[in-house]
Structures are given as C-alpha cells and as structure tokens.
Design a binder for these strands. Structure first.
Length: 397
DNA sequence: TATTCGTGGTC
DNA sequence: TGACCAAGAAT
C-alpha cells in the first residue's frame, strides 16, 4: 500500500520496509536454510509434481501439516497419479479421507480428478484461471498451485500470509479491509523468480516464527522491516473477529445389533454435513434434547431399546453435538435400511470421527454389565462427574 | 457478505 | 478445560 510504495522508491529506513526484491531475497535465503522436507515438496532445483502439489494443498486447507502427512503418503501410495485417483470409487476416496474432516474436500477432489482425467488429458491447467475453474479449487489454491507447481508469479493468500503481512505492514483495519489490503500487497511482493518458494517461505515463516501467539521475532528475517514489531502490535495483529458461541445440538443414535453381533450402519446423503460418510442410524440433530417417547418411534428396527449411560459429545465447527445412544440386541435384520456390519469390520467403512466415538461408547457400555443402561435421555454430563446412578428404562425423561 | 462445512493440538 | 487455531471453498 502507501507505505510499501514509498519503501520501494526510497532506500530502506529502519522499520519502514524495504524494496520488494530485498525482502524476497532475505526471506528466500532464510527459507533455503530452514526449509522443511515435506513429502509433497520437490527437492531443491527439481520441479514439483502438480498432482502432489494439488493433493497437498487440498488436504492442507484448514488442516495442519502434521495431520496431513500420513494421509498424503497413503493417498500417493494408493493413487500415484491423478488418473489413478479419477478411476477410484468415491467411497474408497472418502474411506481414505476418514478422520481428516471437511469431507466436501474429498468429494471435490474426486470430482476434480475426474475432470482432469476425462477432459484435460490427465494434465493440470498451468494457469491460475484454469485451475480456479476446477471443483474444490478456490482463489488461494489456484494461486498456490500456479506458483508452486508451475512457477507462475501468483500470490496465494492464506491465513499465514494474512497474518505475516498484517504485521509487517501494521494493518490495523477490520478483517475484511485487511484481506483486501493484503491481497494488493501480496501481488506487489511476489517475486518473478521462485514465486512458489517465496510464498511457501512466507507460510513457513507464519507457521514457525510469525505465529498467531508468541511470535519469535528474534528469529525473523523480516524483523527489521516489521511495523507491528516496531509499534508493539505483534500480539494484537491481525485483528480477529469475535467468535459466536457454539449452539448445542442433541440427537439419539440407535445401536442396533442382530443375533450374529452385526451392527446396523447406513450411508449419509451426498451433500451437507458428513456427506457420503457412513453413520450409526439416528434421529435428526436438533437444539433441544430428545425424550425416549419421541425417539423410540424413529428406531430403524423394532426391539427392546435401552439407553446407555453417559453419551457422546463431539465438537463440530459451528455446533456441539450431544448424542444419547439407545441400544438393542438380538434384533431381526428384517427390513432395516442400511448395512449390517460387525464392529471388527467397521474399518471397511468411511466412518467420521463422531461415529467412531459412538461405536467406542456403545461397545464399551455393552461390555460392562456393571454399568447398566439408564433411562434418561438428556444433556450429557461433563467428564468431571462420575458415572450416573443407573435407572430402569422407560421411565421417560 | 455470512454461513456451512471436521478434527486434533495447544495453552 | 474451554477457546482458539490450522496452507479455504462453496453457497
């Protein structure tokens, strides 16, 4: 912006920024020394594989490097090329993605691979615009792939870039304005040489030095140019919007077991929360607790349903879920919609983490005769309280 | 522009 | 332990 333009036309003064080329060179030197060896990164001097760059960038959306690494390795081992991924079943992709979250990414990943295989000769577009047209690729990811895989002078602005530049230039406006300012500044900072390395360096800097809290400014190659550091604003920037409180939603899950020990599972709808994933059947998730009288008619199979003590609590991005589990055994499979699956075979299904919790809870509760089922369906006690006294089922709320 | 999308780690 | 945070996209 203004201050940067001034900095590019005058020689650098302490804390007043420096020409873009000088900033880029200093950071690239830092990067060459501190560069992390990640499985999707090309070795120095080698060109990056667009497939690996794309796959890693999708996985890294709102997800940490440490979490992504094992998933990335598993995907590459199983589907070495984008064509291999395109020919895979969506279910197998969702299965490999289970536990990583934001499952729309996996659905769009598969769809995108299909487009590239069927319409683009298994070649990724090498321009930002071409990449942006693909499913699951937004402004950030298009710029990241263009810069990292194809050496284009694009400016991928993620949370790291936003934070680093907000501090470097002491951007104190509200978040929306800062995003716009950062977009402009990022374009001006992008070097013509090694743009991919440069932006990866900024992201590494943000992840390891210019951290959200407790930035290690003594280690920062840009400390001499950082206006936030000069003004004592590093902890305050970037300004964050206040978070809204998470509402609590309530649901009942039905743990239906047949005479062979198989448990009833079903597939969730393709769209929406946990779309396409497998789940334990249950009621809808609503904002007030369920009573047994309300829930029992919704059971997938008729039977003697008993409420298990305790429950399952899971935090999603925008709400908390409290699930009560009703269990029934020796059921007759009959006309139940879904698939009967033995717990030891659950690994064959794409179960999201919340459903793994339900399974763990039900298996543990049913394996403990000393902790009999209870009747109440309602808010789940926090962990700090001990097991509640058991009561007989059918006593209502 | 604001909301809807998971999960695990950190302090 | 709750609140925040992480290489965002789609609608």
């Amino acid at each position: 912006m203004k201050q940067f333009r001034a900095a590019t036309t005058h020689s650098a003064r302490p804390g007043d920024g420096a020409p873009a080329a000088a900033l880029a060179n200093r950071l690239l030197t830092w990067y060459d020394r501190h560069r992390r060896d990640l499985p999707w990164r090309a070795q120095p001097g080698e060109s990056a594989d667009p497939y690996r760059v794309w796959l890693s960038e999708i996985m890294l959306q709102q997800t940490t490097v440490a979490t992504v690494e094992p998933y990335f390795r598993a995907f590459i081992a199983r589907w070495p090329t984008v064509g291999d991924l395109a020919r895979a079943d969506l279910q197998s992709v969702l299965h490999a993605w289970q536990g990583l979250g934001y499952y729309a990414r996996a659905r769009n990943l598969h769809k995108c691979a299909g487009v590239i295989a069927d319409s683009l000769g298994e070649r990724f577009p090498d321009s930002e615009a071409g990449l942006l047209a693909l499913p699951g690729i937004g402004a950030y990811t298009a710029a990241a792939i263009a810069a990292i895989a194809f050496g284009r002078p694009a400016a991928p602005v993620d949370g790291n870039v936003e934070r680093v530049l907000a501090r470097l230039f002491a951007l104190t406006a509200e978040r929306a304005a800062v995003k716009r300012e950062v977009g402009v500044l990022a374009g001006r900072l992008t070097p013509s040489g090694r743009p991919g390395d440069f932006w990866q360096a900024v992201m590494d800097l943000g992840a390891t030095v210019c951290r959200p809290r407790g930035p290690a400014c003594l280690m920062c190659p840009w400390a001499g140019n950082c206006l936030a550091l000069q003004r004592g604003l590093t902890e305050e920037l970037p300004r964050r919007a206040r978070r809204k409180a998470k509402p609590v939603r309530h649901g009942v899950a039905f743990w239906a077991v047949d005479a062979t020990g198989a448990v009833l599972l079903r597939r969730r709808p393709e769209k929406g929360l946990l779309g396409g994933m497998t789940e334990v059947p249950g009621t809808e998730w609503r904002e007030w607790p369920w009573t047994e009288e309300e829930a029992l008619p919704l059971a997938p199979v008729p039977g003697q349903w008993l409420s298990l003590a305790g429950g399952v609590r899971h935090v999603f991005t925008h709400f908390e879920l409290e699930l009560t589990v009703l269990a029934a055994t020796d059921l007759v499979p009959g006309l139940a919609e879904g698939m009967w699956c033995r717990p030891e075979d659950f690994d064959a299904h794409a179960l999201p983490t919340v459903m793994r919790k339900v399974a763990d809870h039900a298996l543990r509760a049913l394996a403990q005769p000393s902790a009999p089922p209870e009747a109440a369906i309602g808010p789940i006690r926090r962990r700090t309280s001990g097991p509640r006294p058991a009561r007989r089922a059918s006593s209502g709320r």
